[in-house]
Each structure stands twice: as structure tokens, then as C-alpha cells.
Design a protein around this nucleic acid. Structure first.
Lengths: 211, 211
DNA sequence: TGGAAAAGTTTCCTAAAAGAAACTTTTTGT
DNA sequence: ACAAAAAGTTTCTTTTAGGAAACTTTTCCA
């Protein structure tokens, strides 16, 4: 699995979909249950699991009952002791009912999940679906000068870019910069350094899809 | 400079990310470093990351410097706030494969490769590149009535759809039809039957990306 | 059934994480 | 080069996790 830019990574499987602002208490949805399932599936008692993991049996109990939020160290001990692998721990053994063959996620204009950065104003699309092959997002390019970048943006994968409005200068590591206007598009390897700058008076808007 | 916390001393921890694999890939984990990389890759300061995650900036600093072992709750806030996905946290960033690397393909407005069908007028984009992960194309939806389809369109993969102009009715096999207007988007599994019909007077234009 | 042993939970304490703010270092603007 | 601001680190306090042991519930066998 290729690395994608961090902010593109999907996290829906762990959290209730909550686009309301901030505070929402972020709790691992049922990490405890998951641990208990795994332990029981191996026919282990708390005592045995305790010996295997090095965590006190009381601690295990509390984790399973979600009375505490284990430290990262504790999670590691669990993983190591019970031979869990990470995705197993964090992935809900979800309803595979619609066979994953029939998913659909609509995002209305402006209803994506905002993700601001100093240079870009991203709006993540289709955030209801996890484990997608592609990550689509709409971006307002606030930068108007190359100087605002300290360095190339660079990550794994391939990217498709379509200019929705305005115009941009498309900088890439191995090519001459090229100006793109509304309707133009580009496809490129993300390991190659890249960056966008608005050249229109108004911030340009682009649609981006990463895979 | 305080002593390293206990969890780092006792914890020359390595763990398996993939146990199915005979020689499981075992790596030392340096959560703090990873977090810092990710944060910096997004050009965020501790202060900004703090706002995004709800964790104190001092806490973030300590996590990044591996002075503390974050609780699972904290990890979740990180994940949500920075848009990380969990496995990413547990895997070392891959070394760049010397593979394809630095390709780029620009398609000017209207300069794509035409591909007409009875119902759609496709314009394939980025046709200079082969072996892409995604296939982008711009389509004019000429159909104005469902009757013009004999059957569902159905094929492998996943598709992302963005309405550039006009409006369409988006029919899918397992959902009620839904109208999409300029700026709306959809992501769906292509094995599920699907079809578009223009509902605006003028033929609607959509951008499609398949993977 | 009863009662002992095993399994699991809760309590209580200490050790460690999270947050606020003071402090230090780095960056920026003139 | 300097001062001011921003970014990052450390200190100090509060809150919470982790472990030992007491306590409660379940299991199982006479």
C-alpha cells in the first residue's frame, strides 16, 4: 500500500462521522470489545493474557471494559503478547453486508470535510466511505507566490488535477512550470516534487484525485 | 534533560505488522518521529496541530520527542486531527522505489481524446501516460431520459464523479436516484449498476475518474 | 445444591500522561 | 544586528493509567 499524503489518509473506520466542530470526545469505538473478542477467541483468561502481555490482569479488565484508555505502550504489549496485528485491532469487523460492491457516497457542493493548510484550503470529498482506492478533494489555492513554499510537496502515489476556476502555475521538480487555466488538467507522479500557485486574481479552485 | 521514561528503556519493542507473512516485517517503532514527519509534511506548527487535534502543544512536543507514551485517546485525536490512518503510524515510511517516478501529462481544455458513445460524449484525459492507476475523463451527458439505456452500466473498480456544469440524475442499482448539480460529487463502486441522465436543458458536463 | 477454585471486577495507591504556563530557541522584519 | 514574534521545550500541577490486592461473580464438581 503506497503512502499517501497524511491528510488524505482515511480515518472513518475509527470514528463516528462527525463534521461538527472540534470538541467531540474522540473515543476509540470499542477497542475494548475488540480486545476481548480476540482474547476469548484464543481461549485465554485474563490471567493468561496478563502473563503473555505483561499487563496486569486488572489493567486488561479495565481496558476491555473501556474504563481506561491504554497508553501506546500498553497497546504495544497487547499487540505483541496476543499476536494481534494492527489492522486487526483497529479495524471493526464490520458489517460486510452490502458486499462492499455497492457503496455510494454523495457529497454536496461545499459539504466536504474542510482541511486547511497554510497554502491550500482543502475540502475532502466522499469522506463517508473508508478504504477507497482514490481520495478526491477540492482545493482552493491560496498561495500566490512560490516563496510561500519551503519545499516541494512530495509523497507516494499518483495524482490527477483538474482546474475548476481561476488559473494556476503548476510547478514540478523535473519540468518547467506551466500555467493551467480552468478546464485544463494534469496527471503526475507524486514522488516528484510539486506545488501550485494561483495566478488569477481570485484564488484558483482545483479538483484533485489521489491514488 | 530528563531521563528517558521507563517505557523507552524496557521497550526495545519491535512488532509485527503482518503476521501472515512468514518472515513478518518487523520494525522498531518510533511513533514520535512518525508524528513529527507527518505534521511537518503538512506544514503545521505545534500550535496549529494542537488546535486540530485538541491536544496541548506541550503534549504534542513530548510525544514527538518520545518523552511520553500517548494514551490511545491521544493517538485517536492525532489520527483524527491530522488525518492520519493508523497503519501509517505503525509503519516506517517507505523508501522511494526507483520506479516510474517523475511522469507528468498535461491535457489542455478540450484537447483530450474523444470517445463518443450513444449516451455519453467522453473526452479521455492524460492519454499520453500508460499504466496509470486512475483514468480521468470528462463527459458530456447527452442522454436526457432513462429510456435511452438498455441496461445498467457495470464494470470493475471504483469511480469518482464530479459535476462540472448542468445537472444530472444519478441512477444506481441499490439506491434511489439522486439529482446532482454543479459542484456536487459522488463516489461509488462500479460493480453496482449506474447511469447518468442530464436534467438541465443543456447537456451536463461531468468529470469522472476511475480506478 | 454447597462450597472451593477460577475468572473477572473494583479499590486503592503510585507512576505516568495531559494541560497550563514559564522558559528557551529560532525565525522574521526593520 | 537587534528586537519582536513565532515555534518549540521544559517545568509544574492536575488528571488518569497501571499494578497489587481485596472483593465479587461464575464455574464446576462432590
Amino acid at each position: 500500500m503506497p503512502d499517501k499524503p497524511a491528510f488524505l489518509k482515511e480515518n472513518q473506520q475509527f470514528f463516528s462521522v462527525n463534521r461538527d466542530n472540534a470538541e467531540a470526545i474522540v473515543e476509540p469505538l470499542e477497542l475494548g470489545k475488540r480486545v476481548r473478542e480476540i482474547r476469548l477467541s484464543q481461549n485465554l483468561t485474563l490471567e493468561e493474557a496478563s502473563k503473555l502481555t505483561g499487563l496486569a490482569r486488572s489493567t486488561l479488565s479495565k481496558i476491555e471494559n473501556e474504563q481506561i484508555s491504554p497508553t501506546f505502550t500498553a497497546v504495544n504489549k497487547l499487540v505483541k503478547g496476543l499476536g494481534i496485528d494492527i489492522p486487526q485491532l483497529f479495524t471493526q469487523p464490520k458489517k460486510k453486508s452490502p458486499a462492499s460492491g455497492g457503496r455510494r457516497d454523495i457529497t454536496r457542493r461545499g459539504e466536504g470535510k474542510p482541511h486547511p493548510t497554510p497554502t491550500y484550503e482543502h475540502e475532502l470529498l466522499a469522506t463517508q466511505l473508508s478504504s477507497k482506492k482514490m481520495i478526491p478533494f477540492k482545493t482552493t489555492v491560496r498561495t500566490h507566490s512560490w516563496d510561500e513554499y519551503q519545499d516541494w510537496i512530495r509523497h507516494d502515489g499518483e495524482e490527477f488535477l483538474y482546474v475548476l476556476s481561476g488559473s494556476i502555475m503548476f510547478y514540478t521538480e523535473f519540468y518547467e512550470p506551466i500555467e493551467l487555466v480552468a478546464g485544463d488538467s494534469a496527471y503526475y507522479d507524486c514522488e516528484m516534487g510539486h506545488a501550485l500557485v494561483s495566478t488569477s486574481k481570485k484564488d484558483a479552485e482545483v479538483l484533485w484525485v489521489t491514488a
